[in-house]
Design a protein around this nucleic acid. Structure first.
Lengths: 342, 342
DNA sequence: TTGAAATATGCAACCGATTGCATAATTTTT
DNA sequence: AAAAATTATGCAATCGGTTGCATATTTCAA
């Protein structure tokens, strides 16, 4: 294993001081352009690699952003990450990604690891089970900027990048009503996560505007996983014709799909007996039969905006500090699962 | 922003030298146990955080492993990562994860970033489009251990952790034959990725043992994405009754599902007209109607084994150096998509 | 009691890049 | 040609933890 080339080696070769080499490698304008060229050429030639530790140790910045997400296994999440990666790499930041798997405990430990790794900034989308954000406090205390995306925490004073959950749910519900549905069930997640609270509000608003009474029994709160979706389907199957909903609006595609699968197995026709709408435009929404009506999120955009915002905070941009909520628009994709035949 | 607590601060408080503090924090046996306890207690009290840069700078190790995967958006991949995370954190290693999105270019740049971040070891599953592994050479040159998992490269002298692709494909194909299928199509990926080459061999072997002639036209090579799967479905639809396969064995679940969706839309009955078998046991395999017969991979196990293996290499364990292929077993999950009604 | 062995702690030189300030070299101005 | 202004480069301290070797202290046996 040959040893690493350092700026001292370059300095010796070029008969310059390490200081000049350091400046040259960063194309400092204080240096003669010719010198800069000579330094860069020599560095290339000798296979010099910048040593991040040495420079992080010195300037107390890591040029690394931490990302904590609930899960990576959705198209939606990977497109957010792609957007983040894009902006971050252009700005010279690296990313460290970790998953909370929807568990607060894991989210805590990931946050702590990242804090100890001294990331320059944190991007986080909260787990279902997160009930408080004390684990983020160390970042606030140390003035390390934090940006929430998608799932933020009510009342938090950090910037959050979210979509117009209220509007989106309103649009989806209105669409179901327009298809003639009157008994619309809403399957949602933990209401302390404000994305779900907002969606519920949008759902209620749509009912109200159409003079449909809101019925609390039609709202099922769960963790939106396979088991809960199946349980929801069983609940529906157990209802008599009077009670049974004629449409279900789910707060994510996965739960919609699992629910549909189970209902289909028990002879329910979709959309004729029950119409469905989901949320997220996951790949499965086009695999299921019938294809699922859903809300399309601008995943890439969320990622890009969140990172730009974080980097601006790192640069000390005052104007961003006062912006604490960035809302992006989403759109309703109408597919067969909600189209009642006339 | 209060300044960071360093070992020097602890040393001053406890009237010990920084050297003793450093040893105490690592519970060095050279120290008096009482002293170690005092140091740890004080560190806790003052909110000391270990500075990774300083220590990485000194001992030239980062305690970080790099992981490059094609994509994170499958259940299979996330379970591998969960297994990796598990073992790595127990051994005190952090992970950096990046996606190649199946593109060789991205894989190259990710490898280079990780090389420059000076990861202690690399875990990689190759992209579809990777045709050579020159980008891994720098790791070999610097004796940084590399472990391939799932998708490795033929002839590479590094350790790889894979499943018995040959056996798995053999089992799946045999199962289809037992269901009475005689014209079995195989939809697969880049054959320079040895997992696909091995699966093809298993498929051929099963045909041969059952005295079914191998027909090259029944093997479709593609990137296994949505578009290719749809194209494959169209190819099938364009065939006359004589040519048309009575079963399709796909090298992953996603392509199987997309293909099924398209065929179903065109009136093909599954499994009666065409039986299907996939590979990976992705969540979608139980969402599609009919549920998809598939190969269940021990994802967690692959991850655990790959990381243990890498860590052993880092520890200089000689016995591992000679092991260059670890093969894990997988199992066939029979579901409705392949069960021809008697 | 004394010297050997074992235990406990400290000294000081690293690791490699950065940067404020100082100095040297060059160009411009008067 | 001398002084001033501008440009180019170097000095040296700093970031915080690590570790081989040296020294100090305690324990134990003879």
């Amino acid at each position: 294993m040959q040893k690493e080339i350092t700026i001292y080696d370059l300095a010796r070769e070029l008969k310059l001081s390490p200081a000049t080499i350091s400046r040259g490698l960063k194309k400092s304008p204080a240096l003669n352009k010719t010198t800069v060229q000579r330094i860069l050429a020599k560095a290339e030639e000798m296979g010099y690699r910048h040593n991040n530790f040495a420079s992080s140790l010195r300037n107390k910045r890591t040029q690394t952003l931490g990302i904590i997400v609930p899960r990576l296994n959705s198209y939606f999440m990977t497109s957010i990450l792609a957007g983040m990666e894009d902006v971050a790499s252009k700005e010279g930041y690296d990313l460290i990604i970790s998953q909370s798997l929807e568990k607060m405990e894991l989210e805590k430990s990931n946050a702590s690891t990242m804090f100890n790794k001294r990331i320059d900034g944190l991007l986080i989308s909260l787990a279902y089970t997160t009930t408080d954000i004390a684990h983020i406090q160390p970042f606030f205390d140390k003035q390390i900027p934090v940006v929430f995306f998608d799932r933020s925490f009510p009342g938090v004073e950090s910037t959050s990048v979210v979509i117009d959950n209220y509007q989106a749910a309103y649009k989806a519900t209105t669409h179901l009503i327009e298809q003639g549905c009157k008994k619309i069930m809403h399957l949602t997640g933990n209401l302390t996560r404000d994305i779900y609270a907002d969606r519920l509000k949008g759902y209620k608003q749509a009912l109200e505007e159409n003079k449909i009474a809101f019925d609390e029994k039609r709202v099922l709160v769960s963790t939106l996983n396979e088991q809960d979706a199946t349980t929801a389907a069983n609940t529906i199957l157990a209802m008599d014709a009077e009670q049974r909903p004629d449409a279900v609006f789910c707060a994510n595609d996965l739960s919609a799909v699992y629910c549909m699968v189970h209902l289909k197995q028990h002879g329910i026709k979709i959309p004729d007996d029950i119409a469905f709408a989901g949320f997220n435009n996951d790949a499965v929404s086009r695999m299921i039969d019938p294809n699922l009506t859903t809300i399309d999120y601008p995943g890439n955009k969320i990622g890009e905006v969140a990172v730009s915002c974080l980097i601006n905070l790192l640069k000390g941009d005052e104007s961003v500090k006062n912006t604490n909520r960035i809302i992006l628009h989403s759109s309703l994709l109408i597919r067969e699962s909600s189209l009642k035949k006339k």
